[in-house]
Amino acid sequence: MTDNPETLWHQFDEERRRAASSKDAEALRIKYLGKKGPLSALLKTLGSLPPDQRKTAGEAINRLKARLEQAVEQLIAEFAEREADAALRADLPDPTLPGTVLPMGSLHPVTQIGLEVAAIFLSMGFFLAEGPEAEDEYYNFEALNVPKHHPARDMQDTFYLENGQVLRTQTSPVQIRTMEMIKPPFKMIALGKVYRRDSDITHSPMFSQMEGLVVGENVSMADLKGTLAAFAEKMFGRRPTRFRPSFFPFTEPSAEMDVQCIFCEGKGCKVCKNSGWMEILGCGMVNPRVFEAVEYDPEKYTGFAFGMGIERMAMQRFGIDDIRLLFGSDIRFLRQF
């Protein structure tokens, strides 16, 4: 044993380094700070010192004591934490066992695409309008500038109800109903089911359309192109679009918008029938006759309208080759979306 605080500390420091567990640390405390330890022995030597040295020697011993106490506490705490952590790790779960099965459902692919399309237009300030699916002939045809005995009616084979109403062949009657209710300027879309008397691998007697209408005092065909090109970029990515003249009784001029085929990048493939383009939607400037039907002043207001089939977009997006799958409610199909 030693009688010098300095050497005592060095000795402790040596032993501290060799400690490997909280048990070793505890043993150190007893050894150095215990009643039979060297610190007590040192203290006992104080009485034999001359009184003038006693004070400084006492202070040195007390400093050593405090230092030892702190060092031991720290050592014990360190080991305790390490050991607690090791105890926690003792029971390692198998991370590859499956998690508890909480059923996850899905939205129908047509709903998903419909919501996606709607979200793009809503973000541009459009609002979502509604209308009935069983319509009066007037709203589905006459008000949209399709007179009763016009060949344009051949473009859509219509379901008639026994009560004289029709199942809407397009979402366009919502345009009329909206214009009857509100005054321009506005930007609206309508999303919903439409019906045509047709059924095969690419035609369903019921399908979904999204319709859009913008009316204001100076809405131009350039605005139509800009709006729909912005939509196409969000929907299909940055790729070329083109507008071709077409015919719809309720728009004049009328157009169809194509976007470069997303499958072949315009080189031509089966999906785009080798044209390099995919037909996306029909559109045009609102025919002044439609404005007359809803008592808007065609001299004051101009506008554009557009309509697109949601199923076709869903089929393109997900590579679905038969439209009937969409209405077959087959869980093996639905689970994939």
């Binding site: 321009p184 300027p185 930007k187 913008v214 204001g216 005092e217 100076n218 809405v219 131009s220 065909m221 350039a222 605005d223 192109k225 800009g226 709006t227 090109a229 912005a230 507008f243």
Partner: peptide
């Protein structure tokens, strides 16, 4: 025809 956005 150019492409613009409506200003309404």
């Amino acid at each position: 025809i150019p492409a613009t956005l409506p200003t309404l």
